[in-house]
Design a protein around this nucleic acid. Structure first.
Lengths: 348, 348
DNA sequence: ACGGAGATCGCCAACGTTTTCATGCATTCT
DNA sequence: AGAATGCATGAAAACGTTGGCGATCTCCGT
């Protein structure tokens, strides 16, 4: 059916070995025959069968990428970065969405690991121990997660949080809320820790609120607790949660940023699309994807070097419309909750 | 390194062929040995090498999925559907983002087609002719695009548009705008055509406005034309465009839905998260992904049957807060454009 | 008791490629 | 001039799996 290396060999009047060499080790064949072989290969539309090649070389030319939830706009951005860099390097990428399920995650890793040269685990939900059982099995790079002796790409959370808190304290806020994400999330623990460290240093009081799903609904659910906490500003685990807060605040008639400032994390595209536009700490999403692929490729090229290369990428506070000066009456008295026009929440 | 079929064969005291049969054609081996083989295979952690299998069977067990832009929240939803169904059927999926570039699209199809059993093209940007050159090369299913004699999965655009227009005319709107998407997009042509057909039937006047990028910025750019067109309601090519409209209307002090009703297409998750929540025609996103995989799999199982199976999936109008009764003064006189707090537009 | 059918299983070729290893030949050194 | 080197190429083995073919054995009908 498809054109094989033998077809090319016959057409060019050489052996199969020469065809291979002409295409993958050009220095080893006579320039004249090399060109001839390449021309006939091109004219016949020959592409080496990757399965056959993989069988002998042990390399598939594929990368695997696992993300917890493509529905969270953060991840498609990372995926785009991974895609772009991988295709540049002539790798194809398997994508798997684990639906926030750490058990499924492990299963998928196992299934994918035999078909790829290396894996990228983006914000994996599994525990450190589970993660450790996977390491050594397959070359592997973590994105948005740190684990000793495992290569990873992470944003500078601490600095991002510092920018956020500095921005708020400069605006006069002294009592700041942090709406926590999933307890099992490494990123959440990291952000919470940074928030404590940074706000202590800045002389601001930090109120930690709940632990919610990293989604719009989580923010909606936490909003009333935020209001009850008597803070003048709130930092959300991520942008989706911040949008949930914003939505509920609007419904309850709380003015943002008049009564309360709201700050997110991630800078997903729609952060700039809502009203008021969301002030947020931009994480290097596509860049993380690219950097992770780079790390993985150099790990594949040279397996025993740099047992745990780690890259930290800079973050950037995007000041938009959801943050403003602290109100003069520090503890706003919101109207009692009404069953407000929330809009039917979420897709069917 | 890895455990091969020979290891299992030796450990179980049988030949390699028997191992294969025990695992893939259970009926052909004695129940006792079958169980023994399966147990030893499991205990050794044996998984057949898919490359080797693919070499001989000609099947890879992989599917390819091409999308134009993962940044548009519509596509991650489709991807999720594809993922889920493919994994159920024990297929892995290659994902490629073509960045709205039809040339890259063709190249990627060519590159992927040799590594997959079949391809899913989601809203392909290429022309009909380009598309035709690809068909026959590889089993292929179109999502969100119709082409004669090519299997496809599409939403019932006409009915969706009918629901949208009926909703608006019931609210008293008689002059309705349609903000068009990319001219090269089949989905756009289809929606525009449906809009004309349906509004004519409903006795409403349709004003077609521009042709914009299918993104937030496109909506922002079209908003002022919409206001100038003197319509009381506007249907956008998709939700992102609708959100762009909404944002610019808010900035110009136009009340939605007081002065103007806005209606989108797709029902991306954030349509319900903004304020006012967006009324929109929900397309079966995940379901399209699943249906496309189903179609592709049955095409692979039985190549010569049903040369052009086609599935049309129902749509559903989601009435939220961005549509309301037509204003009594049909042509609102908006305040002149001010340099309003739009929020920095889009990601860096 | 014999032939044949059916069940069960092993042998071996094949898939398309890469990679040693060996070969032929021209060139250069002593 | 003979040997040693280098280059360019071909032959063949190997990668892990599957599937056709045939061998063996059991069982049944006649």
């Amino acid at each position: 059916m498809a054109v094989t290396i033998k077809d090319v060999a016959r057409a060019a009047g050489v052996s199969a070995s020469t065809v291979t060499r002409a295409l993958t080790m050009p220095a080893l064949v006579h320039p004249e025959t090399r060109d001839r072989v390449r021309r006939t290969a091109a004219s016949l539309g020959y592409h080496p069968n990757r399965a056959a090649r993989g069988l002998i070389t042990g390399r598939t030319g594929n990368l695997g990428l696992l993300v917890p939830d493509l529905g969270n706009p953060f991840f498609p951005s990372v995926v785009k970065g991974v895609q772009a860099r991988a295709h540049e390097a002539d790798y194809a990428v398997f994508l798997a969405d684990t639906d926030e399920d750490s058990a499924a995650e492990i299963g998928l890793v196992r299934k994918l690991s035999q078909q790829v040269d290396g894996l990228l685990l983006c914000s994996p939900r599994m525990t450190d121990d589970e993660l450790r059982t996977l390491v050594g099995d397959t070359p592997l790079v973590l994105v948005n997660r740190r684990l000793a002796r495992v290569p990873s790409v992470i944003p500078e959370f601490l600095d991002g949080m510092r920018q956020a808190v500095s921005h708020l304290t400069a605006l006069g806020h002294r009592r700041i809320g942090y709406v926590a994400g999933p307890r099992s999330s490494w990123a959440n623990r990291e952000r919470a820790r940074s928030a404590r460290t940074v706000s202590a240093a800045a002389g601001a009081e930090l109120v930690e609120i709940g632990s919610v799903a990293p989604q719009f609904e989580g923010g909606v659910a936490a909003a009333d607790q935020v209001l009850a906490a008597g803070v003048t500003a709130v930092i959300a685990y991520n942008d989706l949660v911040a949008l949930g807060l914003l939505n509920r605040f609007t419904a309850r008639g709380v003015s943002v940023p008049g009564d309360l400032s709201v700050l997110g994390f991630d800078d997903i595209p729609l952060a700039a699309m809502v009203h008021p536009a969301l002030t947020t700490v931009a994480l290097p999403k596509e860049q993380s994807g690219r950097a992770a692929v780079d790390l993985l490729l150099q790990l594949l090229a040279d397996p025993d070097r740099s047992p745990a290369a780690r890259r930290e990428l800079p973050t950037q506070l995007m000041v938009r419309a959801s943050t403003g000066p602290a109100p003069v009456h520090p503890a706003p008295k919101p109207a009692p909750a009404e069953s407000a026009p929330l809009g039917s929440a979420g897709p069917p």
